[in-house]
Design a protein around this nucleic acid. Structure first.
Lengths: 149, 149
DNA sequence: CGTATGTCAGCTGTACTGACATGT
DNA sequence: CACATGTCAGTACAGCTGACATAC
């Protein structure tokens, strides 16, 4: 990007305040997430496992793009999942370069448990704290914020 | 519904969907942030610097609590900021255990630049994409979500 | 003495870049 | 050959715990 007015066009104070809040919330959520990792899998492992569970078989490169990381990083995550016996890799019969990644039986069980356990604290907090109207507001905002990424 | 005996109260589907969206959004934000880190300071350095800029002099422990990290982690961040000459530490005359952390002149300049540069893309995106009503919705949701952390 | 502040050392998780083998 | 896929090796960042000196 070579926009020359990158530093000149100042955002509105309201937008800047909202951006600040987003950053701050995001930092705290990150830390919270790390702390409550439930000892099972690391966050990136769980995320990949869940993606395979929801999206079906895939490949290193496709998973890497889905998660927004480089293929080398995904290789590391997949290696750790492989050592845990949660995934299986087999060569793609149609393209010898590719490895088709699938969940093992244990991986499917783990993914289901994780889906119901790992982020359950968040879902439960939402249930406890928020009214339906508030949840609607949050969902609306999430849909908007998703446009930013 | 076979494995739904988690032993705890299951969250509502709506809450779980919202939690999923939150997790996903913040993963993407995280990655986006890393990619656009502008080479200047690391995220944690920038965050502490900005906090000092907005909140004035502080201490290791107070900063650690503000950022939601342990004091040892904050020590590391402050060390790196100290090596860059962006902060100054001096003993608290009233309590020999404490170190009062202040921004150096260079630190103040850096903090101002960061505030206007590091997260400006987010603020600008907000300005570009959202109406005032939508921004109000987002702010409302942010205030609610802050309760989760 | 017990408590609080701050530091150092070492560990883990997760991303990155570079180099490279292999297959299309 | 160029290009794509996947891997290994090395590095940076950012949190963590444990141990400890110092000051209250």
């Amino acid at each position: 990007m070579e926009m020359s007015d990158q530093g000149e066009q100042q955002p509105s104070p309201a937008a800047r305040a909202a951006a600040d809040d987003i950053i701050d919330l995001f930092r705290r959520l990150n830390i919270r997430m790390r702390a409550l990792s439930s000892g099972d899998l690391t966050p990136s492992q769980a995320s990949v496992l869940l993606r395979l569970f929801k999206g079906g078989p895939s490949s290193t490169t496709v998973l890497a793009m889905s998660e927004g990381v480089r293929s080398q990083s995904m290789t590391a995550t997949l290696n750790s999942l492989g050592e845990l016996g949660l995934i299986e890799r087999r060569p793609d019969p149609e393209d010898g370069r590719r490895q088709i990644i699938t969940l093992s039986q244990a991986g499917r069980v783990q993914a289901e448990n994780d889906r119901d356990g790992r982020f359950a604290w968040l879902a439960r907090s939402i249930d406890e704290r928020f009214t339906e109207a508030q949840l609607a507001t949050i969902n609306e905002a999430l849909a908007l914020l998703a446009q930013l990424t």
